[in-house]
């Protein structure tokens, strides 16, 4: 009998085992160097969306739950954060915290309802609940309706550090992004994360092993919503604006697109995807409505031809985990 030789057998190279660490270091180095080459404001916005997409990916990529209403947490956190900074006069870190807490609360309520149904219904329920909260945002007084909350002061971090300086703000956003990113990495690689993956692969089996899968799903949902809220709250301070765009359904679709393009269920995929999509919107701002068509085409192309996404495809080619 011929022996099958596994090309990967034997000593795994350092590059394969440490691929994630190497890419992470490269990403951090790139993000530190980037503001010297391009607009810091664009980078900060991209990092907020990257964190948003990572939070979304925690659900779809690791629990297999497609939430089509993540704009709810992103948008409402940005409203609360903007309101807290502007009207209550809170310092930026407290404003962001307030926004994040709002997202966590919304995530708890919406998650508890949505996990009562599976699969396709889960997506429809999250979308419908998000649309309900969109109407609340449209009608509530404090959100400013169509105008949104404008001219939000960036204020002084801890009451001391002036965030009007673009570079100082950049460092803060970078810290929040990396903190969120590492937290998600930690969740995925914890025993808790292993249970989530077990639920993704086969929920019935996880139940038969004695796991209360509903509780795991709910905790994952709240974590995802909270981190999405952290991203939204930070974005409101950075752009000094909270508006209906962030809470409406196309935003929910956009975060799905970012994650899909980058690669569902990969650690770095959502980051790459959100930079790609934002760059595309930035470059295509002139063509107006065509952006919608192009996004749709990317969706279709990704689903039909490119289901692993950019990072997933690279990881597959190189046979590493990213």
């Amino acid at each position: 009998m011929e022996r099958v030789v596994d090309p990967l057998a034997g000593k795994p190279s350092l590059w394969r085992t440490q691929a994630q660490a190497i890419v992470f270091v490269a990403m951090v180095a790139g993000l530190i160097a980037a503001p010297f080459f391009t607009y810091p404001l664009f980078l900060m916005q991209a990092m907020c969306f990257a964190l948003f997409a990572c939070a979304f990916n925690l659900l779809i990529g690791y629990v297999g739950l497609l939430s089509f209403g993540h704009a709810l947490y992103f948008g409402w956190a940005s409203y609360i954060s903007a309101h807290a900074a502007k009207v209550w006069g809170l310092t930026p870190e407290l404003a962001i915290l307030a926004g994040t807490a709002m997202a966590a609360f919304c995530g708890l309520v919406a998650g508890a309802l949505a996990i009562r149904r599976q699969g396709i219904y889960f997506a429809m329920i999250t979308l419908a609940l998000a649309q309900m909260m969109y109407f609340f945002a449209l009608q509530a007084k404090f959100t400013g309706g169509e105008d949104g909350i404008q001219a939000v002061p960036r204020g002084y971090l801890f009451g001391l550090i002036d965030l009007r300086n673009e570079m100082t703000m950049y460092v803060v956003v970078l810290a929040i992004f990396l903190g969120g990113f590492l937290f998600i990495y930690r969740i995925i690689h914890s025993p808790f994360g292993e249970v989530l993956k077990a639920i993704r692969e086969n929920e019935t089996r996880a139940i038969s092993l004695g796991y209360k899968t509903d509780r795991y799903k709910l905790v994952a949902f709240v974590l995802s919503a909270t981190l999405a809220g952290l991203a939204g709250a930070t974005k409101a301070i950075v752009l000094q604006l909270a508006s209906l765009t962030d809470v409406n359904w196309p935003m929910s679709g956009e975060v799905v697109l970012m994650t899909l393009v980058g690669g569902l269920g990969t650690i770095f995929g959502p980051v790459v995807g959100s930079f790609v999509i934002l760059l595309m919107q930035f470059k295509l701002a002139a063509v107006g409505e065509w952006v919608l068509v192009i996004q749709g085409v990317i969706f279709v192309a990704c689903v039909l031809l490119f289901r692993r996404g950019i990072v997933g495809e690279i990881a597959h080619k190189l046979r590493i985990k990213l």
Partner: peptide
């Protein structure tokens, strides 16, 4: 018809993409 063997969620994503295309074309 290419999606029937995959997770149902891909059908949702694909038709969402189609909806964006149709709506975008109509707006243009």
């Amino acid at each position: 018809q290419r999606l029937y063997k995959l997770d149902h969620l891909y059908g949702l994503l694909l038709t969402f993409g189609l909806a964006l295309i149709f709506e975008g074309l109509a707006r243009n």
